[in-house]
Structure formats: C-alpha cells, structure tokens
Design a binder for these strands. Structure first.
Lengths: 96, 96
DNA sequence: TAATTTGGTTTATATTATAAACTACTTTAT
DNA sequence: ATAAAGTAGTTTATAATATAAACCAAATTA
C-alpha cells in the first residue's frame, strides 16, 4: 500500500536537482544553485550523493579560466526518478 | 520554481499517516501501524509530531479493557496535506 | 501463575540536512 | 602592484530527523 520511497530522492534539494536534470541535456553547478536557491555547501554535498548513487554524472572542466561543474542525469537516475514519482502517487492519491 | 516542502509532511511515515487519515473518518494506532508497517516507537513519535503541528488530533480511550488511541485529521491538516501535494507536483512535473 | 501478546512510551543511536568556515582562483578597482 | 570583492566550489562541524532498542503496564492465553 505504501511503497518504500527511495531515500536518495526523498530529499527536497536532491529531488529539485533531479527534477531539473530530468528536463535538460545537462546543467552546471551555478545554474542549479540559482534555480534551487540552495547554498553552495548543501548543493555540493547533495550532488555528491546523487553521483555516488549513480543517478547523475559530474564532469569538471573550465569555462575560460573559471572552473565549471556540469551535471547530467544517467539512465539509472531517470529510472529512479520515474519510480519515485510513481511511488509517491500512491501516497498522495490515498487521501483522494 | 521549487516551493518549500512542509517539513512536517516531507517524511515517509508521517506522509503515510496523513494519507490514511485523509481518506477516513478516524483510525486507531494499531490500524495505522499495520497499514504502514511502521514500528510502534517510530509511529508513536511521528503521531506526536503531527499532533504538535495541529495536523491531527489524538484521542485516548479504551476499547473494552484495552487502551485505544484514535487519530483524526484536522482541517489544518487537510489543508496542509493538500498544499503539500500541490507543491510536490511542481517538483515532479518539472522533469516532465 | 507464568509466559505471551497488545498497546503503547521513552530514550538512545544512527542518519541526514544544513550552515559555517575555508580553499583557490579571477576580476575589478586603486 | 596590490587590495578588495566576486566566482566556484569543498570540507567540516552542528543541528535536526528518523529509526531502533529498551522498557512499561495491563490483558490474554496456556
């Protein structure tokens, strides 16, 4: 009746990050930070976790002289996000 | 873009409890425990929090000789649950 | 009457999220 | 040239949360 919610995704910031990445080809750290309003520290940590879970990939490079961190959702991440949405529907719909 | 999610509701167990209560007149501790699969301790704590937030009311009485704890959603709880569902839609739909 | 079960609460611990402090480098102003 | 301010983060410490373990009291069953 109440399926287990993926703890990696059941986090406000990580869910927002995944939500952004699910809709675009890729996005860099600063863009995600602006969109979510998160602090750098928090975002850094949460991106690490998504990466460790294999839900996103992180690529570090430079845009001119400035460091740039680009994130991209993986197939597994896309799937996990989709599963999470499905699971959540059951919680939300139960109360009609 | 990403509205703040009510931290009281953004918890797997509390959300499940609210989901159950949103659909029925009232429900007792044991029923909720069975439906959610939660441990007594965890459920006890989370019910307290929902109660402290004013989202549910808890009525203690006896069914025969056995103690019985009955929970019921409040108007504020109904509203908060509804708001949470709305907010969440934004996260989920962003990734289309 | 001695387990066992029901119906919980309290307290301790593990996990998670968040904020604060720091690093490293670049750009702009003096 | 150098100082101040901004960009782009990471690391580490602390606060909040969730979960589990231990406990309690009464009722039921053997």
């Amino acid at each position: 009746m109440f399926p287990k919610l993926d703890p990696i995704l059941h986090s406000e910031l990580r869910l927002a990050v995944m939500s952004i990445l699910a809709g675009v080809e890729d996005a860099d750290f600063s863009f995600i930070k602006k969109q979510t309003g998160a602090t750098s520290g928090n975002l850094s940590v949460q991106i690490d976790k998504l990466c460790a879970a294999g839900y996103i990939t992180v690529e570090k490079g430079f845009k001119g002289k400035m460091p740039r961190t680009t994130c991209r959702i993986t197939e597994a991440g896309q799937q996990a996000f989709s599963n999470y949405v499905q699971a959540l529907q059951e919680y939300l719909s139960a109360g009609k």
